[in-house]
């Protein structure tokens, strides 16, 4: 790791001010993506600004029709949240199959979204639930937030403060784990909104990151059941191909994971 300067601000304003002042700063949330990258000398931030002690960034609340998870809330705290479990159990399930217990103590939802790994879990939930990402400067709709491989709409210095998930009528997440990294080899989040709209998002399948799956959405809109997907074919165009799975296999997994998620969602 290159030498860096570590900061631990206690307010959002201080964090943003530190960022503006530094030469080439980066924000640190749980650190479980950033620190390994820094250890391998693939990132060389002049300053590391730790968001983990900013109280305004931690907490879970349910207001009206939305589950709001503040950005620096750890995965562990999400798995323990009775409110989250009541509001959107699929989010809690997703969190329990994310990383491992030690990682879940440190990793945060905001950190995962800001990183936008193409095989990360949360982007699928955010996209399928049409969540809104709140930053220190604005609100960003899910569809606008994810901009391809490891890329988001966040501007330099912008900090995710919370994610607001509209509470759906039905939702579930089904994940085929990557055998080595335990990220998603392919995973699918299915949701049916209270107004009846079906949204399906797949992660781990495409190198450009999380994606919606229109063929499955159409079939499920017509008939919300696992068997409704029996006849459909998911195109393998543009899907990832590597030692752990061909594009055709990932296309199959999108369908199979979607079927299992629909079955789980009831």
């Amino acid at each position: 790791m290159y030498e860096t300067i570590y900061h631990r601000p206690t307010s959002l304003a201080d964090a943003a001010a530190l960022f503006a002042k530094a030469g080439d700063a980066t924000y640190l949330a749980g650190g479980h993506t950033l620190i390994p990258v820094m250890k391998q000398r693939l990132a060389a931030p002049s300053d590391v600004i730790d968001l983990g002690r900013i109280k305004d960034l931690i907490g879970i609340e349910v207001t009206g029709d939305a589950l709001i998870i503040k950005a620096a809330t750890t995965y562990y705290d999400i798995t323990q949240s009775a409110e989250a479990k009541r509001a959107i159990p699929a989010i809690v399930h997703l969190t329990t199959v994310l990383g491992d217990p030690a990682v879940r103590y440190r990793g945060t939802i905001g950190g995962s979204l800001a990183n936008n790994d193409p095989a990360a879990d949360y982007p699928a939930a955010v996209l399928a639930l049409d969540a809104t990402i709140t930053t220190n400067t604005r609100e960003i709709k899910a569809a606008d937030f994810f901009q391809g491989l490891m890329s988001t709409a966040l501007q330099p210095g912008e900090i995710i403060t919370a994610v607001s998930f509209p509470i759906p009528a039905k939702a579930a997440y089904s994940k085929m784990r990557h055998p080595a990294s335990r990220f998603a080899l392919t995973a699918v989040f299915v949701a049916k909104t209270k107004s009846g709209e079906v949204r399906v998002a797949a992660t781990g399948a495409s190198s450009s990151g999380v994606m919606r799956v229109p063929a499955i959405e159409q079939a499920l809109t017509a008939n919300w059941s696992a068997s409704a997907l029996d006849g459909i074919t998911v195109s393998s165009d543009g899907l990832m191909e590597d030692i752990h799975g061909s594009a055709a296999y990932r296309a199959n997994l999108i369908k199979v994971m979607a079927q299992r998620a629909v079955a789980d969602a009831g």
Binding site: Y6, H7, R8, L28, G31, H32, I35, P36, K39, V48, D50, G52, Y76, D100, P101, A102, V103, Y105, R106, S181
Partner: peptide
């Protein structure tokens, strides 16, 4: 990934190879 470095920070099992001392 390997967990050989796990210690407890404030009672929670954490990978100490992925924690800056400042944290």
């Amino acid at each position: 990934q390997c967990g050989a470095c796990i210690v407890h920070i404030d009672g929670k099992a954490v990978k100490s190879c992925t924690v800056l001392v400042g944290q």
